[in-house]
């Protein structure tokens, strides 16, 4: 049976790597048309795309790091060029995540109050432009790795490699590996964040499954930002682990499954945020979810447990820490 890690990771990166730029263009297009037409539903669609892109950028970045680890000793591929690309991609990743975060806040407020705080959607739009610009630079530098013939400054292609320690990713890695407290502290935060996120998703999904039936859905929806807070803490600390010791993760089957289920759980989180069925004017007293929504709640809880399983099993299946 082929394993989840048996495909070529560089190919996966080549497949995924257009998502952040093309996705940002799509989100921007929707937002700009929505502004011009004053079309609220279209604006929400733009914000939803932006959040989805922020989610998908995670595997894009990680597959890039994995491809670098696999290819760095191959002749004809410049390790320096890959590191330059990777640092630019890390900047792009950070801005894209921030854009997705602002887009999520706007979506959450829109669901609750009918509209987001003034200025929030324009802010998300500006961040999407910024993410597109920075990601385009990363994409250009990525293209240079295997296509030196299209480089703007051909002479730079033959420059001697600089000190690899000058890159941000390398600096993060040095701190994570050498500091006696950085890894344990990040792990502690990762576990606290896990409990917070899981608690929120437990409450919201249990409501959909019929627990707390007297409570209007809007009231458990109020908890979602706390779930995102826990998730944000885990995104930051998780990235510190991944950048710190990429080789512990890039060949590890539980890590791939963890990412797959994280994408499912993230998509479900977006669905719960914009979930319309349980809101007024639909009578929200003792509102009962459809069978499909109940099935979705079960999938959501299962996915979070699978994310947790994949993470906790990392030291045992595949790779020893």
């Amino acid at each position: 049976m082929p394993s989840i890690t048996s495909f070529n990771i560089a190919h996966l990166h080549l497949l995924l790597n257009h998502v952040p730029t093309v996705g940002a263009i799509l989100a921007l297009g929707l937002l700009i048309v929505a502004f011009v037409r004053r079309d609220e539903p279209l604006k929400l669609a733009g914000l939803e795309v932006l959040f989805a892109i922020a989610l998908l950028t995670l595997p894009v970045y990680m597959s890039g790091v994995a491809a670098h680890q696999k290819l760095k000793n191959q002749p004809g591929i410049s390790d320096d060029a890959m590191r330059v690309h990777q640092d630019a991609a890390l900047d792009g990743f950070a801005v894209t995540e921030f854009a997705g975060f602002v887009a999520w806040i706007a979506l959450w407020q829109s669901r609750r109050r009918g509209r987001a705080t003034p200025g929030l959607v324009p802010a998300a739009t500006v961040l999407a432009i910024l993410a597109l610009v920075i990601m385009s630079r990363a994409a250009t530098l990525g293209g240079d790795i295997r296509h030196p013939e299209i480089r703007a400054d051909v002479s730079a292609a033959s420059e001697p490699a600089g000190d690899p320690e000058r890159f941000v990713a390398s600096k993060i890695s040095v701190i994570m590996v050498n500091s006696p407290w950085a890894w344990p502290a990040s792990e502690t935060i990762h576990f606290l964040g896990l409990s917070l996120s899981f608690g929120v998703l437990l409450a919201v999904n249990l409501r959909i499954l019929g627990v707390m039936k007297r409570v209007p859905f809007a009231e458990v929806h109020r908890l979602l930002p706390w779930g995102l807070l826990g998730f944000g803490a885990n995104l930051v600390t998780g990235m510190l682990f991944f950048i710190g010791q990429p080789n512990q993760y890039i060949d590890s089957p539980p890590f791939y499954w963890k990412m797959v289920f994280l994408m499912i759980a993230g998509a479900n989180f977006l669905y719960l945020t914009v979930f319309r069925k349980a809101w007024p004017p639909v009578s929200n007293d003792a509102w009962d979810a459809s069978v499909a929504d109940k099935a979705m709640a079960v999938v959501s809880l299962f996915s979070w447990l699978a994310v947790l399983y994949g993470g906790r099993m990392l030291p045992f299946i595949g790779h020893a820490f």
Partner: peptide, 16 residues
């Protein structure tokens, strides 16, 4: 792993 899942349920629910 079950100990960690139990933690998520126990602490998460308690925090809500």
């Amino acid at each position: 792993t079950l100990h960690t899942m139990g933690m998520g349920v126990l602490v998460g629910a308690s925090w809500m």
